[in-house]
Amino acid sequence: MLRRTLARLLLAAPALPLLGCNMYTSSCGPAGEGTGEPSKVNQTFRIADLQLADGGTPEPGASCEQLCVLAAPQDNPPGPCSLQSGDGGTPETVTCTVTFLCEGRRPEGLLSDGSVDGRVSALGALFASMAHLEAASVPAFERLARELEAHGAPARLVRAARRAAADEVRHAQAMGTLAERHGAPVPTVEVEPFQPRALERLALENAVEGCVRETFGALLAGWQARCAGDSEVRQSLARIAPDELRHAELSWEIDAWALSRLDEAARRRIQEARREALRTLQREVEESVEQEEFVRLAGLPSREQARKLVQGLAEWVITAEA
């Protein structure tokens, strides 16, 4: 059912890199109790290129905070910023803290946020964040395999989790290659030492990071594989997308197995956590920022397209829970 649903949602993706493909942003920062902080990077904008909502230009003397609201409106309030002046002493560029987000399974206790130090291109920062999240998924799946085995899960689920960890190693390498191609180093993954968890806590994390985040990540990978204007991006995601679909299916299989072993109160808590994760995803879509580079090269969906993808996923989740 999941495979058919995702295939139906992806029918809206253009088969070639058209302007219908755009940028979507979502969270790929540290994970705590089912929440994360986005990755951030400094990006510099020419003040002359910034426009007000009415098409006008910023007033002379505008602060860097005011300019960053125009340049990167997803930050409210904007993060740290600075102005750079030209030879005449008049500010010509503004450097803003820009948020880049992506989707996937974040391990509990993830300390690193995927941010890149120094000035790098927007695409470099995006691919570095994606590589960081793929690399963080490796210990997430390794831990999941150990915990499933400890809780007496079927051997096929344990094997699938170990296979997913190996998949994520390849995904991290592929995204790291793209990041380095755009001049961005891949941040080191830092995770707190894992502690044994009760089955409900494992199931709660799986509901948020697997059933919601990773399932939507499979949708994004499939979309990019069709829409990316950069052939290397398109080819990389075409190899990654089938793996991510298997990981999403694994998340739902683990969910069904875990729920069968938990009491009704625990099942309700997990269901509510999953629905809250969907609501968070919907809010992130509304706060997303669009940039032309992502339109042509990264192949991510527009805000409106992402809104429809999340809505389609939410409707399927509600049906699956019934």
Rank of each mutant, 00 (worst) to 15 (best):
M1L: 05
R3C: 00
R4C: 00
T5P: 00
L10D: 05
A12H: 04
P14A: 08
P17R: 03
L18W: 08
L18V: 02
L18N: 03
G20Q: 12
C21H: 09
Y24V: 09
S26R: 13
C28Q: 06
G29Q: 03
G29I: 02
G29H: 05
A31V: 14
E33Q: 09
G34W: 04
Q51H: 14
T57F: 11
E59Y: 06
P60Y: 12
G61M: 13
G61H: 13
E65Y: 08
E65L: 12
Q66D: 15
D75V: 10
N76M: 11
G79R: 08
C81A: 13
C81W: 10
L83F: 12
Q84L: 11
G86N: 12
D87C: 01
T90Q: 13
E92H: 05
T93I: 01
V94H: 03
T97V: 00
T97N: 02
L101E: 06
E108G: 03
E108A: 09
D113A: 12
G114S: 05
S115A: 07
A122G: 04
L123E: 14
L126Y: 14
F127A: 07
M130F: 04
H132M: 09
A136D: 07
S137V: 10
A140F: 14
F141Q: 15
L144S: 13
R146A: 15
L148M: 12
G152A: 07
G152Q: 11
A160N: 08
A160M: 09
A160E: 14
A161M: 08
A161I: 07
A161D: 08
R163A: 14
R170H: 08
R170K: 06
A174D: 01
L178C: 02
E180Q: 13
V189T: 04
E190D: 05
P193F: 10
Q195S: 07
Q195R: 12
A198F: 00
E200G: 01
L202W: 01
L202Q: 02
V208Q: 09
E209I: 04
C211V: 12
R213P: 00
T215S: 14
L219R: 03
Q224F: 00
A225T: 08
R226L: 12
C227H: 05
A228P: 02
G229E: 07
D230V: 06
L237M: 13
L237Y: 14
L237T: 07
A238C: 05
I240Y: 06
E244L: 09
R246G: 01
A248V: 04
W252E: 03
A258R: 01
R267G: 01
I270N: 07
A273E: 08
R274K: 14
E276M: 09
L278W: 04
E284I: 06
S288G: 11
V289D: 15
Q291M: 10
Q291L: 14
E292S: 08
F294G: 10
V295L: 13
A298C: 02
L300R: 15
S302R: 11
K308N: 08
V310R: 12
G312M: 12
L313T: 12
A314R: 15
E315D: 15
E321N: 15
